[in-house]
Every structure is written in structure tokens, then in C-alpha cells.
Amino acid sequence: MLSKRIISCLDVRDGKLAKSVRFVDTKDIGDPVSQAQKYYEAGLDELVFYDITASSDRRDIMIEVVSQVAAQIFIPFSVGGGLRTVEDCSRVLLAGAEKVNVNSAAVQRPELIAEAARAFGAQAVVLSMDVLRVSPSPKIPSGYEIVIQGGRAPMGLDAIEWARRGEDLGAGELVVNSIDADGTKEGYEINLTRRIAEAVTIPVIASGGGGTPEHLYEVLTDGKADAALVASMLHYGEYTVSEIKAYLTGRGLEIRPV
């Protein structure tokens, strides 16, 4: 049976590891390469690196991080943040990433998804979406709106509709990140995750709000997610990969043994 995947997200700024809380405060918490190596050895299934470097002229640091990671860990990983063109995507893939993660640039120019899927195959293109809960309206019937710029800019785009569009354009996976839940450690946005998982046929990765193994169980069952992203609960050592996996296996989920 296909396993539910446990994925960790590492935010990288200027080549250093950072963790954001509700997208506002970020603090540096170490070296991304050695952290990736630790998680690889601990039996994590996949990694995501998000480049949150502010200035675009310092993006080469990220390419260096990607090639160092690729030389040391032998599980799939994706890279996102600041990828605006097929050339940007090509650079991180050549440096050794398995997949690219596109977000804001795809909202602003959806053709990017199709171009990347044509160039690298759908399996290499992950569409990440940041979603904010709003009052349902004719424009946002689901009550979930796509936002960019770390949640500051609402785009007047319904999240369910955007997920379907992303799949049609050629995305191979979706990361559904709830801005409301992100950093709270109070649990994933189950309703949002389930509605998107039911609207598309590609794998859905739940993101934002994971604080306990129970939260992962909820989103991988009720939320119908194929994978769950974990960040602070691992980064701050509150739980280990083994503990999370042992819990989920104990609850009857198909999980890759560590």
C-alpha cells in the first residue's frame, strides 16, 4: 500500500534556516544542510526548502544549499520561493531538487505552471497555495481565498477554483497552506484540506498548524490529505520523526518505517 508521507518544510533565508510564525516573525534556527541530513537519517519521507531570502541578487546562495543537500540526502525534495520563470525552476532542478514549488508567481502568471510542467513533467511541479479564511461571497464562494506576499495580499481568487485550475495547467501536487493555522500548532485546517482534496485528483499536502501527531492523523484521514507538512513540532525537538511515525502507524495508517 502507498504510504502517507511525512514531509518537513525548511525555510531558508540567506542560506540559513528560519522558521516563521504566522508569517510575521522569523528567527534563524540553524544550518539547512545539516538539518536536512538529520531528518534524512531520522527517516523523514521528503523535504521542502522554501527560500525566503528577501533580495533576489542573493538567490545564488540557495542554489549552493540545494546542491549540498542533493549530495547528502537521497530522498525526494522540492524547492520553492522566488521561482518566477522556467529558467529559475531549471536551476534548482539541475542543482539536484526533485521538484519545484511555485506559489505567488503562479498566481500572478498561471502559465508558469503549464510551462514548467511541459519542460520538466507534471511530477516535478508542485503548486503551493496560501489560503486565508474569509466570508463567502460571490467571488469567493468557498470562503477560502488565495493570498500572496506571506498572507498580506488577498488575490480575489477562490482556493477551490485555483486548485482545480492548477491541476488543469499541469501541477503534479498541491501544497495547501492555511495562513490561519500556520504557526499556531493547533491543528491543520481540516475542512479546507478535505475540500481541496475532493476537488482534484492529484496528491494534496496539508500545511500549517501541525502541533501534535494527532493533528497529522486528523488531516491524513478526515482531511483526506496524502501527505502532511511538519515544521516547528520537529524543528524545536518537540517530537521526533520516529515518534510521529510510530503514532500514525499505531493508529492504522500506512507509513514508511524509519
Binding site: 500500500m1 502507498l2 504510504s3 511530477q123
Partner: peptide, 10 residues
């Protein structure tokens, strides 16, 4: 079931 078959399997 989703296609592609993607992820870890026994």
C-alpha cells in the same frame, strides 16, 4: 486511485 503512483510503497 491517483495516477501517477507517487510516493513510498512497499
Amino acid at each position: 486511485l491517483k495516477v501517477p503512483h507517487m510516493g513510498w510503497n512497499t
